[in-house]
Amino acid sequence: MPSSAPHPAPEPPIPALRTVAIDDLRYIRETMERSAAFTAVPGWATVAVGVTALGAAAWAARQPSLAAWVAVWLAEAALAVTLGAAGMVAKARRAGGPAFGGPARRFALSFSIPLFAGAALTLAYLRAGQGGWMPGTWLLLYGAAMLAGGAFSVRTVPVMSACFALLGALTLFLPRAWGDALLAAGFGGLHLVFGWIIARRHGG
């Protein structure tokens, strides 16, 4: 006859419980980091970049040489980076978070790699006198940079990135003479539209 004495309760599987705790801590850290990156996208700064890009497109179209044309767009790129960084810092401060925390650093790293590729290709095109490939390459690589840096951002950012990449790919197969108009449509138009959407939906 089996004993009626109660069996001792089985001990919980320690590795499994430890996994839960580690998994929870990882989820908390990732959510905090993701949320910081998520809201750091500056809507109004993106609109401002769109406005300056429209001005740059009009100015660049009047340049007599390829070198002068590239110089205008490089100046616009420097201005855009400054506006974007200032917007991110201002937004992070308003949210009470660190301006250059882990997510911001990761965004900058992911963003900088395709931009470096763009800079190298620009130099190569400039040396070869092949300025016609620049607009498509810039739009395509900017889309890739935004997609890499903003993969975990508000959904508007990956959508905007995909639009840039598609426009860039299309530009490579369109007449070279349309370059400034297509750059205006991308860096001007897309930044204006998506910047406004981000600012309205996700605050500044």
Partner: peptide, 17 residues
């Protein structure tokens, strides 16, 4: 966790996040 890293978040932000 998300609110611990941000002063405020909207319903839409949290839903997307």
């Amino acid at each position: 966790s998300a609110l611990a890293a941000n002063e405020t978040l909207s319903f839409r932000d949290l839903k997307d996040l």
